[in-house]
Design a protein around this nucleic acid. Structure first.
Lengths: 362, 362
DNA sequence: TTGAAAGCGGTACCAC
DNA sequence: GTGGTACCGCTTTCAA
């Protein structure tokens, strides 16, 4: 960063015009590739701009253009432990926005698969400038996503991706690597031949399928002595998860370890508690919420893979705004690394569950 | 987020004046607690502002006030693997700044302890509006920090803290927990009585002392079978680090594991390589750079605790700008969680060492 | 092809 | 105590 200005005063469009003995209108046209400037004048303007180290005053520009961005955040209410902080992150990003008028509407529907399509269609009808959302079963949603994007409304996937759907970008945890990490951690803990099980939400969701893929592949490479049982799908329903956990743990091929790849882990813990299997079955969970804290502290749960919903939300809105503000600029796809929460770094994360004071972790 | 505006047009100071049959001057005075408004009018204005959902247009404000923030980033050139990405993060935050004129100057001095005081004094003399820096040996720097802050220049610590020095805030990895994590990881890996050593930069630096404290405390609690050898200080010098590593590894109490709590780990690896001790001595490193990648892939290094320099830099500048823009708003202290990089999540981080394309991890 | 001028929404100053 | 108004730097429209 070199300051080229002579005396602290940043050069403006006016200074360029003055130096050239022309008008600010001409300078503006030249700088913005607009029609109605002779090639020669344009070149002179460009050179002088460079020479004076001209940098546009963005405050003035956005004041004049008066951008009024309206974006919709369409997310399920369940699982609250994940989607509430995600929305909080989006809100935080909105609060930090300076110099731009931003209207942010949260459209929450009951749960994944129940009301999501209607909510998305509602958002599209209201002509938002952009939409943040979580795709469940991309196959089913691809059509509507493509349709909305076709209307010129950019959509950005958060928490799970829907590749090839037309979404402009996505912000998620790297699902494959989440699964791989779970496998690597278990491979350290279980050193004798054992069975491991996975409990997931819905394998038709890209994110969940990827986690399982990473888990299975890494298990095969790093821990050939571990046998992987067929995956259990809980469909993000507490009832389903509980019933299937009981069945799994009572079956004759009881697993020695369980990888729960969705935030919906409470029903599984209930089953483990009732069958008095905590400690005998190693558990790796996903995400963090109040009930998980004592389990990690006591070692009943080995680790949890924290998906950093707040950070995801913040990045998602920042990315969308970047795209809306400056089209043509390439949009980054964000793949977050999950945080491995163990006993010793738990306080850093548990902190934020209760307090919202001066200190903030991430 | 509820939109209180009637027809998409955000209410401005003008609308308030009109609705009240008064002038914009009065409204401005009322909204800003300025003198020269009767209590009654003030109350009416405030109520109407609330009712219309008035939110100041920050673009207009900053255009008029024409804030020209100048901030200095004062950091050592060594260790580049850490401070270069940290500076990149600061630059990234600057690039995202919208609606504010920001001049960012990087002042790089040779290394911690060599030129830092001069650089700080230089920055203070140039009357920057704020300074980002890394405090080495806070005891020695506390005086100058206090002096600069006394001149009304806010200073923000990055990467290491200097508590009670007058700095307005700090952004660092939680050092205590970094050390604790290293200990917990080693406690899993070494299951028989063993010796563990630590190599740090400079125990007079707050950050390094904290890491060691966390390491020792956690070792005592979670792994009583591990014996901690006296700490080795490398003073961030490659030569020192190498010589002392050789001495440590040749000594009669050769450690079975080493926790390197600074990014200055290459000399240690050289010593391990030359003495053919890779694989026989477990290693936990700090931060990530090219040479570390194959060591993690092959298992020669068990894990590294990534301090996320880029994220720290970004947050630091954002925090400083927040303070400069809106004084009186409380300033958050940020304690980052280090990322535990293992073999299976390495690709996510190794990626960014080489490419700068569409996909970005964090 | 170019120049002149009207705002955008606040802030700050001056006159009443 | 209050009202009026000249800016801030840029975009855009209209006139030359």
């Amino acid at each position: 960063m070199r300051s080229t200005d002579k005396k602290g005063k940043a050069a403006g469009i006016r200074d360029i015009a003055e130096a050239l003995g022309t008008s600010i209108g001409t300078v503006d046209r030249a700088l913005h590739d607009r029609s109605g400037v002779s090639a020669r004048t344009k070149a002179r303007v460009l050179r002088m701009a460079e020479q004076l180290g001209y940098k546009p005053n963005i405050a003035a520009r956005s004041l004049k253009l008066n951008r009024n961005l309206r974006v919709a955040a369409v997310f399920p209410r369940e699982i609250a432990a994940f989607f509430d902080p995600l929305c909080a992150g989006i809100q935080a990003a909105a609060d930090e926005t300076v110099g731009m008028q931003l209207t942010l509407d949260f459209l929450r529907y009951p749960r994944l698969g129940s009301g999501d399509i209607a909510a998305l269609e509602g958002a599209a009808a209201k002509k938002y400038d952009g939409i943040l959302f979580t795709p469940r079963r991309p196959r089913e949603l691809a059509g509507i996503i493509r349709h909305i994007v076709g209307q010129g409304i950019p959509m950005l996937c958060v928490a799970s991706d829907a590749p090839d759907s037309g979404r402009i970008s996505s912000v998620t945890v790297d699902a494959y690597i989440s699964g791989a990490l779970a496998a690597e951690l278990l491979s350290h803990k279980l050193q004798t031949p054992s069975r491991v099980a996975t409990i997931t939400g819905d394998l038709a969701t890209f994110d969940h399928a990827e986690k399982l893929r990473g888990f299975a592949a890494t298990l095969a490479v790093l821990a050939p002595h571990l046998t992987l049982l067929p995956a259990v799908e809980s469909h993000e329903s507490a009832e389903d998860a509980y019933r299937q956990s009981i069945a799994l743990l009572r079956g004759k091929t009881r697993p020695d370890a369980i990888y729960i790849s969705t935030a919906n882990s409470l029903p599984v813990f209930r089953a483990l508690e009732e069958l008095k299997l905590f400690g005998r079955v190693q558990v790796i969970a996903t995400d963090l919420f109040r009930e998980l804290v004592p389990l990690l502290e006591s070692g009943k749960v080995l680790a949890t893979l924290y998906q950093r919903p707040e950070a995801q939300g913040k990045t998602a809105l920042e990315t969308l705004i970047g795209h809306l503000t400056d089209k043509g600029k390439p949009v980054k796809i964000h793949r977050f690394a999950p945080h491995i929460i163990l006993r010793s770094n738990l306080p850093l994360f548990a902190n934020r569950l209760v307090n919202t004071q001066g200190i903030s972790a991430d």
